[in-house]
Simulated scan of single mutants.
Amino acid sequence: MSQSFTKLWIHAIWATKNRQELIDFSIEKNLYDFIWQELNELGCPVRIINGMPDHVHVLFLQNPQKTISDIVKQIKGSSSHFMNRGEFILEKFAWQTGFGAFSVSESQLDAVCNYIKNQKRHHLKKNGEDEFNEFMRLHGLENK
C-alpha cells in the first residue's frame, strides 16, 4: 500500500482539579465551544462534547501525526487558560493531571454519541468518579 490511512475515534474523559464543580451550566457552552475549536485546529474533528460540572467527555478523530497525550495536554492547557483569562468563574480553573482515552469502533459511534449527549441523565444515578471507574473496568484497566 503506497499511502497510509487512519480513522481512529477517541472518547476522551477528563475532570476538573479535585473534581470541583467548576463547569456551571452558564459557562459550559463557552468551554465546549473553545475545546471544539481547539481540537479542530489540531486536526482532530469533533463529533460531540458534553459533560458535568466536574468533568467532560469528548468524541473526536485522532490526528495521526499527534499522540493522544499531546492532544489532551494541549486542550486541557489551552482551555484552562481560556477559562481563567475570560473570568468566567471566580475561582481558579484547572483540570486534573490525568485523563482517560478509549478507542471507539465505527459501529459504536451512535451509542457513544448518545451516551455523551445524555450525560445529565446518566449522572442522576452515578457520580463522575464512579462513571470513570466503570470505564476503566470495562476496558480492562485499573484506576491507580
Rank of each mutant, 00 (worst) to 15 (best):
S103I: 06
R47A: 10
Q65N: 11
F102R: 03
K73T: 04
A101P: 03
L59P: 00
L39Y: 06
N84H: 13
I49D: 00
T67H: 05
S69P: 04
W95H: 05
V104P: 05
P53A: 15
E91K: 15
S103Y: 03
A101L: 08
I71S: 03
H55N: 07
V72Y: 06
G98N: 09
E91Q: 14
L90P: 02
V56Q: 04
D54H: 10
K66F: 04
I75Q: 02
V46M: 05
V58N: 00
W95P: 07
A101K: 11
I68Q: 07
H57S: 12
A94D: 13
H57I: 12
H57R: 09
V46E: 01
D70G: 15
S80G: 14
K76V: 07
S69T: 12
H55E: 01
P45Q: 14
S105F: 12
P64N: 11
S78D: 08
C44G: 10
M83V: 09
C44D: 01
S79N: 07
C44A: 12
H81R: 05
P45H: 15
I49R: 01
N63K: 03
V72M: 13
Q74D: 11
K66T: 00
E87W: 07
L39V: 14
F102L: 11
S78T: 03
I48N: 05
I48Q: 06
E41W: 05
V58I: 14
V72S: 09
R47T: 04
T67S: 15
F88I: 11
V46S: 11
E106N: 13
S79R: 06
G77A: 04
N40K: 12
V56P: 00
G51C: 13
F88S: 09
F99N: 08
G77E: 12
S80D: 13
H55A: 13
F82T: 00
V46K: 08
D70K: 14
G43T: 13
S105C: 11
I49T: 04
L90E: 10
G43R: 08
W95A: 07
L39H: 05
M52Y: 08
T97H: 12
S69H: 13
K76H: 02
V104L: 02
G98T: 07
Q65R: 07
H57M: 10
V46L: 12
P53E: 06
V72N: 06
F60L: 10
N50I: 08
G100C: 02
I49K: 00
W95N: 05
V58G: 02
K92P: 04
Q96K: 14
G100M: 00
A94V: 05
G86E: 09
I71M: 06
R85E: 15
G51I: 14
V72Q: 10
E87M: 12
F99Y: 13
V104G: 04
N84V: 07
F60V: 04
L39T: 11
I89F: 00
E91W: 14
T67K: 11
E106P: 03
L42W: 01
T67P: 08
F99I: 15
K76E: 01
K73M: 06
F93M: 00
F88G: 10
S78W: 05
S103F: 06
V58R: 01
M52T: 13
R85D: 02
E41L: 05
H81W: 10
